[in-house]
């Protein structure tokens, strides 16, 4: 049986659509002959810009972007909620565009610019989105918040004055199980200056 690596899997399918068909791990009975260990995993050196800082680093080819951010760069503000492209908790900006960092391989980031939640504020000066998120109580548990903020940032980059419907559509790839969607939308509209007075738009 041909071994399916993490890289082939991510490249071949992208996301969680096939997840239903993946058997629980216990069904994988045929053992690969030569398991890939930390020491013999293929590696590639990449150059990228993260939160304004240029970096060169060696990454294992199977590492995802979120894995590099969290495990190797200590940028743990980006969260993992599903690790299969369903929830948006890991949303970061790559060249200004919102992507699920669990569904991007680190090697693909060569030559790209990545912005995470840690790079959203300018020093101690919060982004208007962050201020609005505080004032409108957008985070409940807060676990999806970094992803919501980055998705909102990407939305406002391309559409600075969105309507309520445009905010909902622009952020619908970011799940919030606390279901604080009303306050998230209010906060984004407040940051964009399109929230009508009196709370809900």
């Amino acid at each position: 049986m041909k071994k399916i690596s993490r890289r082939l899997f991510v490249e071949g399918t992208g996301a969680g659509i096939v997840a239903v068909a993946i058997p629980l791990e216990g069904q994988a009975q045929s053992a690969p002959a030569a398991p890939t260990t930390a020491s013999n995993a293929p590696k590639t050196t990449i150059k990228l810009t993260i939160n304004g800082q240029q970096r060169s680093m060696e990454v294992e080819d199977r590492w995802t972007l979120v894995e590099v951010l969290r495990d190797h760069l200590q940028l743990t503000g980006t969260k993992i909620g599903c690790d299969r492209g369903e929830c948006g908790a890991c949303t970061v900006l790559v060249n200004g565009k919102a992507v699920y960092s669990c569904s991007q391989l680190a090697v693909w980031m060569d030559g790209r610019t990545v912005q995470t939640i840690e790079g959203l504020a300018q020093g101690t000066k919060l982004d208007p989105l962050q201020t609005a998120f505080i004032e409108h109580d957008a985070p409940q548990c807060g676990y999806c918040t970094s992803g919501q903020l980055m998705a909102a940032k990407a939305l406002l980059n391309s559409n600075p004055k969105p309507t309520r419907e445009e905010v909902r559509a622009g952020m619908t790839g970011n799940l919030c199980r606390c279901s604080n969607y009303n306050h998230y939308v209010e906060a984004v509209m407040a940051a964009a200056g399109t929230l009508k007075s009196g709370g809900a738009a």
């Binding site: 791990e25 216990g26 743990t76 939640i117 919060l126 985070p139 807060g142 903020l149």
Partner: peptide, 29 residues
């Protein structure tokens, strides 16, 4: 709220200790 909107709130999964191992579960098919 400030910690929650800046990514600085440390959740359980964010904690990393020196020499830490990672565990996975094998489950019934």
């Amino acid at each position: 709220a400030l910690l929650r909107v800046t990514g600085k709130a440390e959740y359980t999964g964010d904690v990393k200790l020196p020499g830490m191992l990672y565990a996975r579960l094998l489950r019934s098919p």
